[in-house]
Design a binder for these strands. Structure first.
Lengths: 136, 136
DNA sequence: TAGTTGTTTATAATTATTCTAAAGAAGATT
DNA sequence: AATCTTCTTTAGAATAATTATAAACAACTA
């Protein structure tokens, strides 16, 4: 399903050579059924756990940023001291469980269309994101 | 209008003794007509400029956090490496000009009501925030 | 006024992220 | 497959935002 060939394709599309380290990163990022929300540090630790091989933190940062730039990862807007990413790159919104520091995807129909009825001259809308914070 | 007495009241309500430093912080935060968006560092520099007196960074952090906890300041959700605050504590949304790194308030009627049609058992909604990113 | 408690401050510690430069690997050329 | 060029990896240093620390000091209480 999510094969090594696909990973290599994604890497090449992102102007990255398919190295062993980057394939390992892809393995953790894309070889899964469900959406995956993570911080760089989560990912860094998972790579060690899942592949048994260590990849340097700098490489994780570089690769994730390249994927983000290419649109293979979505950056999630939360006020936290860490940056979150999402393998679900479609336009969608999030719950954020403040206590557990966990992200949950919201389908677009769970929120409904959002009409922004104001514009700023010379600027256009790049994204519209809803973040619903949850408490107990 | 926004008098020293009000500042002292806000401080007392936040369980803070009204010291010279904290009054200076209030002066910059609350003695203004329009909504004020800022980072701690903005505020830190403005205090020096506006009052001529220096307040240590730690005091600025402590005071802002106490006001935030008490509800006199609103924390804004942006994915940036800095935390933003807003003196407009009413429920409202924002534009964020990515290029200029500037926040603009959106009135609630500019966005319209947002219906969240999904719930998570045991959790309740704490806040719903829309962030509209702008590009050129 | 004295005594208790809270506050300020400079500085150190911590954390997330980016930078750097040397050693190594990938891809192209023969 | 040997060589060359270019890209990559990596550890560790650098940076930046934030939080913690502890000694000097100011506010409140009795």
């Amino acid at each position: 399903m999510t094969s090594r060939q696909e990973f290599i394709e994604k890497l090449r599309n992102s102007s990255l050579r398919p190295t062993k380290q980057r394939i390992n990163i892809c393995e953790v990022l894309f070889n899964r059924d469900k959406t995956f929300h993570f911080t760089i540090n989560d990912l860094f630790n998972l790579i060690k756990d899942k592949t048994g091989e260590k990849v340097s933190l700098a490489t994780v940062y570089n690769t994730v940023h390249a994927f983000h730039k290419k649109g293979y990862l979505k950056e999630i807007t939360i006020n936290s001291n860490q940056t979150y990413f999402d393998t679900n790159v479609t336009d969608h919104h999030h719950f954020f469980d403040v206590k557990e520091e966990k992200l949950i995807d919201l389908k677009n129909e769970d929120v409904g269309p959002i009409e922004i009825q104001r514009s700023i001259p010379g600027k256009k809308i790049k994204s519209v994101e809803v973040l619903v914070k949850l408490e107990d």
